[in-house]
Computed example of a mutant assay.
Amino acid sequence: MVVMVQRAVLLLGDPDWIAKLLGAAYLLIPLVAAWALVSELAFGARTEQMAKVLEAEGGLPVDNLPRTPAGRIIREAADAEFEKYKVEAQAAPQDWRSWFRLSCAYDAAGDRKRARKAMRDAVSLFRQR
């Protein structure tokens, strides 16, 4: 990112308008990258904070799913366990704990996109409390 900022400054100092445009674009990329880095670190910190609260309450989901010899969770077992957490989240849609556990179930079932969405919902509810 430092090199990109340096190049952006050099390009912005060039008299050619195309170089100035490229310099402006080069300046935006590190800013977007920095924003993404900070937001991901904040997301991770909040997730860790929620996990500590759940651990203290004894509410973390137990990882007792059967695994293949390579260590991967057996998909059918994860899908069966997922239903339990889905019903829990539907029964208590305003409880961040249920969304956290649902996110873990999505992750175990291999659906990372929905796991991340459920965890974002959990973080949002956690921050509102």
Rank of each mutant, 00 (worst) to 15 (best):
Q6L: 15
R7G: 05
A8S: 15
L10K: 15
L12W: 02
P15C: 07
W17I: 12
I18Q: 10
I18M: 09
K20Q: 15
L21C: 07
L21P: 00
L22N: 10
G23S: 05
G23N: 02
A25Q: 08
L28Q: 06
L31Q: 11
V32G: 05
V32C: 06
A33P: 00
A34E: 06
A36K: 09
A36T: 06
L41Y: 07
A45E: 07
R46D: 13
R46M: 13
T47K: 10
E48D: 11
A51P: 07
L54K: 05
L54D: 08
E55N: 11
A56N: 09
A56Y: 03
E57A: 12
E57V: 01
L60Y: 01
P61H: 04
V62D: 04
D63M: 14
D63N: 14
L65P: 04
R67M: 01
T68C: 01
T68I: 01
P69D: 07
P69T: 10
P69W: 05
G71A: 03
R72D: 13
I73S: 01
I74A: 02
E76G: 02
A77K: 06
A77V: 02
A78Q: 04
E81W: 14
F82N: 02
E83M: 13
E83H: 07
E83L: 14
K84E: 07
Y85L: 08
Y85D: 09
V87Y: 07
V87S: 10
E88M: 14
E88I: 08
A92E: 15
Q94S: 13
W96C: 10
R97W: 06
R97M: 08
W99E: 06
W99C: 06
F100L: 05
F100N: 10
F100I: 09
R101A: 14
L102V: 09
S103T: 01
A105P: 05
Y106W: 13
D107K: 09
D107R: 12
A109C: 11
A109K: 12
A109V: 08
G110H: 08
G110L: 06
G110V: 04
G110Q: 04
K113I: 13
K113P: 00
K113D: 14
R114I: 00
A118N: 07
M119D: 04
M119W: 05
R120Q: 13
R120N: 13
